[in-house]
Design a protein around this nucleic acid. Structure first.
Lengths: 271, 271
DNA sequence: GGAAACTAGTGGACTATACCAAATAAAATG
DNA sequence: CATTTTATTTGGTATAGTCCACTAGTTTCC
């Protein structure tokens, strides 16, 4: 397949728009038009270099730009691929990752990377209602959608409140386990989010290059007695999700009905 | 000032960690330690090249990495600067930008870039409760914190519901105007967020380079009659904000008190 | 004194290459 | 046929420059 820009188009606005943005535009258009379906592999960087008559550095600049916009992603030394659609995610809803992904016709999966019983340091005691030295559980999970790792979780749990937790099947909803086995009902989370870039260890786990853009989300969860029983950290691939929140300002319940959680108000490219 | 890495440290883990990450680490450490205060100008790229004995390309890679993490930012052809702290922002709360920024001891400002009365196209009618051809207002505002542009707003309003809106002082809270002049009380927004990168026009308005990482946030706002009266698009500098949400699951009001909206659970660098 | 013109300073874009490391495919081997 | 070895593909990191465009300060000129 020939990806190059027609020579007439080349001359048209020559030198007014940088090469890397033109190539970006070219692929962005193809992706939005649907000519390039999610999962499609893009040509290797060296091929782009030849076809567009640029250097690899410039080609990479275009690709990095598309990556930042969430249109494409890379797999370490394997190539560049068109991103699958974002998953709609409401961090304030009491809906598990699994349910939420299934509801959108995608296939979720979870892998427990590590479980650990450890002693709370000053850091942990700051976010969980425990003293320094108290036991806590640290669970690391990786969650995927359609086989693609999208989320790395670090779950910190007050160990005294749920003895034997690590013996339970941790690839399921933690909220369910807490409720069924320990009579703990989670509610009233504090949620914190910010866009950042991944550091080496997290990037490794998600199979992306260090420095890849990401969304960091943390959650402090209170139980029915108003004490913190869980502190979660979530590292998301930035192109994997779209946060959707429906706010209800404590009005009559009838008004909360029939709410469509999603509004696809923009194409992938801003205009 | 000499920024270079001590030669003993150079040899220690030589060749195991890429240069650009070491330089990143160096500056990240200085910033977190507080040696480099917000607003401080970093040395020019050419100086970094000489001091670290790398090429400018590599220096830029390090800087871009720090930018992606939100630790530093650039001003077009002026240089690189240490980012100010993120502002805590709750998109679900009925608190205006101005109030929220003031409450955190910072100085907000607003500039109206353009106001326009236009005819709804298919696109607009999709998000506002109007027909194609109905009049709508489009207001573009730029909001700054301590003199630094952080947010570009595109506000779409149903014009028939608020005649003469463009004649009012638009540098204030739109919610207030709606309420005071038109008896419209905004509630129940749908909020949508995703990390992306800025396209040329938005980047221009915010004074950043096109392709800079950003957070896109849109809001569909219903009035007391359950019809959509406003549709907002917000383009945020990604390093300017931290989303903080307190979720209350419709419990007794007493439980909603004394909630600290912020938890600084991570340093700028992930670990 | 104020406007216009020059001049560094500094990032933005790009060329042309080089070598390395991980992932994959192909070939050799038991 | 399955396994190990080897070669190829492909991105990751880095060098060494060049030219351009905008910013901001300084000087010149009317």
């Amino acid at each position: 397949m020939d990806w190059s820009i027609p020579s007439n188009e080349r001359r048209a606005w020559d030198r007014r728009v940088p090469y890397y943005l033109r190539i970006r535009d070219r692929f962005a258009a193809l992706i939005e038009k649907g000519s390039l379906l999610p999962g499609t592999k893009l040509p290797p960087e060296r091929e782009l270099r030849d076809q567009f008559q640029i250097t690899r550095v410039t080609a990479r600049q275009a690709l990095t730009q598309l990556e930042a916009e969430g249109l494409i992603f890379r797999e370490n030394r394997r190539g560049w691929f068109v991103s699958p659609p974002r998953i709609q995610y409401d961090p304030t809803a009491n809906v598990s990752f699994t349910e939420s992904v299934l509801a959108q016709g995608r296939t979720p999966s979870a892998t427990v990377l590590s479980t650990e019983r450890m002693i709370a340091s000053a850091r942990e005691s700051q976010f969980l209602d425990v003293e320094v030295g108290d036991p806590i559980f640290l669970i690391q999970r990786l969650r995927s959608i359609d086989g693609r790792a999208v989320l790395l979780e670090h779950l910190h749990v007050n160990a005294e409140r749920c003895p034997g937790l690590l013996g339970l099947p941790l690839d399921r909803s933690l909220t369910e386990l807490m409720s069924e086995h320990y009579g703990i009902s989670e509610y009233r989370p504090h949620i914190n989010m910010r866009p950042t870039a991944l550091a080496e260890p997290q990037a490794q786990a998600l199979g992306v290059s260090p420095g890849a853009p990401s969304l960091y989300l943390s959650r402090i969860i209170y139980d029915q007695f108003d004490s913190i029983i869980e502190f979660d950290q979530e590292f998301w691939r930035h192109d994997a999700l779209e946060i959707c929140i429906n706010v209800h300002h404590h009005l009559s319940p009838v008004q909360a009905e029939g709410v469509n959680n999603s509004h696809d108000d923009m194409p992938e490219t801003l205009r």
